[in-house]
Design a protein around this nucleic acid. Structure first.
Lengths: 110, 110
DNA sequence: GCGTAATATACCTAGTTAGTTATATGGTAA
DNA sequence: TTACCATATAACTAACTAGGTATATTACGC
């Protein structure tokens, strides 16, 4: 965000943030922290439906957040790079800081 | 994203990413890089409708991405902290890197 | 008080999307 | 070939959302 982004650039950045803006997809990324996984493993790990998992994976892949590798019948997905987790970590830290601030502001009920 | 986030935590993180996943809101944040601004200034700077700007500001504020300060008739908004821009910068860097990679892969047409 | 300016909200419409079920695609094994 | 398995996609519904217009709220000056 160096200032004065073109509409096309804004749209691309927004697309990627939007891909992260869904609990189901964040959960899948969280699961993928443990390493590369086949779709069927993700289905088991998340408890989500097969078609739903597949669709979310397409969205994550289109956003460049996960990498894809085919091997026989199976398709293995993994985190595209460490920035993906960095983004989530920053966002989580923000939330922790704001939770702390809220507690300071409203008290913990002691 | 330290692994095994609760559904409530996932929802809160997703809410914040989703707030960033809209070109109009990214544009507003980009404009706010220049400093605190009243709503009317944002309307002028972005060319968006008044109700629309106001609604997007509520979303950004609910996500903790902008700070709000009232002064008389005016309400001034500003970036909540530098992490907001950091997130965008990381995402932009990702896009630049991937654009570079695409150019290397497909050629620049020289 | 009244009028007016700045912002927020209600309401509506059109477009989008998550989740589902059913089906298609691609690859393997017999 | 046929049967089967893993994944992707199509089609549908319900819920959500961006953007607009109209209205409400809030604070100021008179």
């Amino acid at each position: 965000m160096s200032g004065s982004l073109s509409p096309a650039e804004l749209a691309r950045v927004a697309e990627r943030f939007k891909a992260l803006g869904e609990p189901a997809r964040l959960r899948m990324l969280d699961v993928l922290r443990h390493g590369e996984m086949a779709v069927s493993e993700l289905i088991t790990a998340t408890g989500m439906g097969q078609a739903n998992v597949s669709k979310h994976l397409q969205i994550l892949h289109a956003a460049g957040l996960v990498a894809r590798r085919k091997e026989g019948l199976f398709v293995y997905y993994s985190l595209a790079d460490r920035d993906v987790l960095l983004l989530c970590d920053i966002m989580c830290d923000r939330i922790e800081r704001q939770s702390d601030a809220d507690q300071r502001r409203f008290g913990t009920g002691a």
